[in-house]
C-alpha cells in the first residue's frame, strides 16, 4: 500500500459518504442521477464477488463492505425513502441502461485477463465504472442543476481518479510484474469522462453565480 493508493481510497470513500450524508441530511436527491448511482452499486456488487473467497487484508474486506453498503443505501434512499424519492426527477434522468451495460458485458466477455466467471465480472465492473458517470453527465447538461452536486463531491471524485493513476505509476516502477492494461485503460477513460463532468460542473456553477448577481 502506497500513499497514493491510500489517499485515493479515502477520497473515493469520502465522495460516496458525502453524497449519502447529504441526501440523508437535506432529505433531497435533486440533481442526482439514480441511474449513475445504480450503476455504481452494480460496479461494487460485481467487482467484490471475491469478498468471501479471497482474503487480501482486513482493510480490503472492510472497505468493500462499506462501498457495498453505502452505494446500495444511496439507491435505497432515492428509490424508497418516502421524502427523498419525491425530489427525484425521473423524467430528466432518461439515459438508457442498455447503451451502457450491454457494451460493457460484450467487452468483458472478449477482452479479459482470464475467462472465468469471477474474472469476467471483475472486468465488467471496471468497464462499467469507467462509463457509469454518463447518466449523471446527461442529467447535469439537461437540468444545469448543481444544487446537490456539491463542490466537495466533485472534488473528491476527481481526486480519487487522479490519485489512483499516480498509484499505478508508482506501483509500475516499484513492483515487479505490475502490468495491468485493462484497469489502466478503463481508469484513464473514466478520468477523461470525469474531466468532462468537471467541465459542466464548473460551467453550471459559473452560470448560477451570474444568475444570483443583484440586478
Amino acid at each position: 500500500m502506497n500513499i497514493f493508493r491510500l489517499a485515493g481510497d479515502m477520497t473515493h470513500l469520502a465522495s460516496v459518504l458525502v453524497l449519502l450524508l447529504k441526501i440523508h441530511t437535506i432529505k433531497s436527491c435533486a440533481g442526482i442521477s439514480l441511474k449513475t448511482q445504480e450503476l455504481y452499486a452494480i460496479v461494487f456488487a460485481t467487482r467484490y464477488l471475491d469478498i468471501f473467497t479471497d482474503f487480501i487484508s482486513l482493510y480490503n474486506t472492510i472497505m468493500k463492505l462499506i462501498f457495498l453498503g453505502s452505494s446500495f443505501s444511496i439507491v435505497w434512499y432515492i428509490r424508497q425513502h418516502k421524502i427523498v424519492r419525491r425530489s427525484y426527477d425521473k423524467d430528466q434522468d432518461t439515459f438508457r441502461y442498455v447503451f451502457i451495460v450491454l457494451p460493457c458485458i460484450f467487452l468483458a466477455l472478449i477482452i479479459n485477463e482470464k475467462f472465468t466467471f469471477k474474472e469476467v465480472m471483475w472486468t465488467f465492473s471496471l468497464y462499467l465504472e469507467a462509463v457509469a458517470i454518463l447518466p449523471q453527465l446527461v442529467l447535469l447538461q439537461r437540468t444545469r442543476n448543481i444544487d446537490n452536486l456539491t463542490g466537495q463531491y466533485v472534488f473528491l471524485l476527481g481526486a480519487y481518479r487522479a490519485l489512483y493513476i499516480l498509484n499505478w505509476i508508482y506501483r509500475y516502477f516499484t513492483e515487479p510484474h505490475y502490468i495491468h492494461w485493462i484497469p489502466w485503460i478503463a481508469g484513464i477513460v473514466q478520468t477523461l469522462l470525469y474531466g468532462d463532468f468537471f467541465y459542466y460542473y464548473f460551467h453550471s456553477w459559473k452560470n448560477n453565480k451570474k444568475l444570483q448577481l443583484p440586478a
Binding site: 468493500k64 510484474h177 505490475y178
Partner: peptide, 10 residues
C-alpha cells in the same frame, strides 16, 4: 517474484 492471486485494489 510472482504477483499474488486476486485483485488487491478497490
Amino acid at each position: 517474484e510472482l504477483e499474488p492471486e486476486g485483485h488487491d485494489e478497490l
